[in-house]
């Protein structure tokens, strides 16, 4: 008994070390990206100035640039990356399908639809309700996809096909809403829909930080549920979990995570698809390890995409969503070919 327990621990140990190693590596990567985001740009600030300004001790120009322009943007990028990645990891566990993600299930398109309806059709409603509208749209799309594509116990490729269809449907609906609206409102919505964190404000950061403060701990609390879910319906029931209830709760969690992001930044594709895959390559199948690595990976992807978007074609800003799509779509092709 003792000897088998010992050998088990010996087997786990190098795994643990690997996870810790990966986590700290990703953390350092994020830190490096954070540093280059804060220091690079048309206004060349040396690290010392940036540090001083962050602490509120710099001169007026650098304080404005660092505190009002760069810091909210970097924080927003991080939060968005984390949320999309967690949402993707949860969705992939529920669907037991590596191709599932907030994007392929139509959730992002639904959330965008909700937000565009609010922006264009009801311009009088304050923007504070934008997350709620996006959430409503996201839930609606998820329900559509779920009811069209769910086959019960069997494999869930149908779910992905239904999700693609629902996504296209909502995109068409968005275009129709755009025809309704006034020109000024439409150009605002168009800017937003391309998935950009250009012009991030502290109020945006506040929205996503508040929701993250609730949602991220919730996600980490649900790791056991996710592990059980990933084993399939029959095993989950055998293990005594209320599968249907858990699935709905987890789906709600995933939808909330991605809709909040969509409300703030517009749909940024493929982060929720790529991050969990990279995490699984590193961490195996235990969600206790997958979630933190996926979250760090997501944050790094969005930060890197934003950094590229700011610098490659400077002074023109390229929306983050373009770079994540440029990396993410080939990744999807790779997944398709490999399977």
């Amino acid at each position: 008994m003792t000897s088998s327990a010992w050998s088990l621990r010996a087997r786990i140990r190098p795994e643990k070390r690997k996870i810790l190693f990966a986590c700290s590596g990703l953390f350092l990567l994020n830190l490096g990206l954070f540093y280059s985001q804060m220091t690079s740009g048309p206004f060349q600030a040396d690290p010392w100035d940036v540090l001083l300004a962050t602490l509120g001790l710099g001169d007026e120009t650098s304080t404005f640039i660092v505190l009002d322009l760069r810091l909210p943007r970097v924080l927003l990028a991080m939060f968005i990356g984390v949320s999309f990645a967690l949402s993707g990891a949860i969705v992939q566990a529920i669907c037991r399908n590596p191709l599932a993600s907030p994007g392929t299930l139509g959730i992002n398109a639904g959330a965008s639809f909700g937000a565009v309806v609010l922006l264009v059709v009801f311009p009088d409603i304050p923007l504070a309700f934008l997350p709620a509208a996006a959430f409503g749209g996201g839930v609606f799309a998820a329900v559509c996809t779920y009811s069209l594509g769910w086959t019960g116990s069997s494999s869930s490729t149908r779910l992905v096909l239904a999700g693609v269809g629902v996504g296209v449907l909502f995109s068409a609906l968005i275009s129709i809403v755009m025809v309704f609206g006034k020109l000024q409102l439409i150009s605002q919505a168009t800017l937003w829909i391309s998935g950009s964190i250009y012009g991030a404000k502290w109020s945006d950061v506040a929205v996503i930080a508040l929701s993250s403060a609730v949602l991220i701990p919730l996600s980490f609390l649900s790791v056991t549920m996710l592990d059980v879910m990933a084993m399939g319906r029959a095993v989950s029931i055998g293990l005594g979990s209320a599968v249907e209830r858990d699935r709905v709760l987890l789906l709600l969690l995933a939808v909330t995570l991605s809709s909040t992001c969509v409300a703030v930044s517009g749909p940024i594709g493929f982060v929720g698809l790529m991050s969990p895959h990279i995490a699984r390559m590193i961490a195996g199948s235990n969600h206790r390890n997958i979630l933190p690595i996926a979250a760090l990976t997501g944050a790094a992807i969005v930060q890197a995409a934003d950094l590229l978007g700011r610098t490659v074609f400077a002074p023109t800003e390229i929306p983050v969503g373009i770079f994540t799509a440029a990396v993410g779509a080939p990744f999807l092709i790779y997944l398709l070919v490999k399977r």
Binding site: L99, F313, I318, P319, A329, I333, L336
Partner: peptide
């Protein structure tokens, strides 16, 4: 012959093209 594969391959090609179109239009 998987439909999912075909549809998702099309979706991937579509999003690459859409991203590049947007890039060109912005530039």
């Amino acid at each position: 012959t998987s439909s999912t594969k075909l549809v998702l391959a099309g979706a991937a090609v579509t999003s690459i093209c859409a991203a590049l179109i947007q890039l060109i239009l912005i530039l």
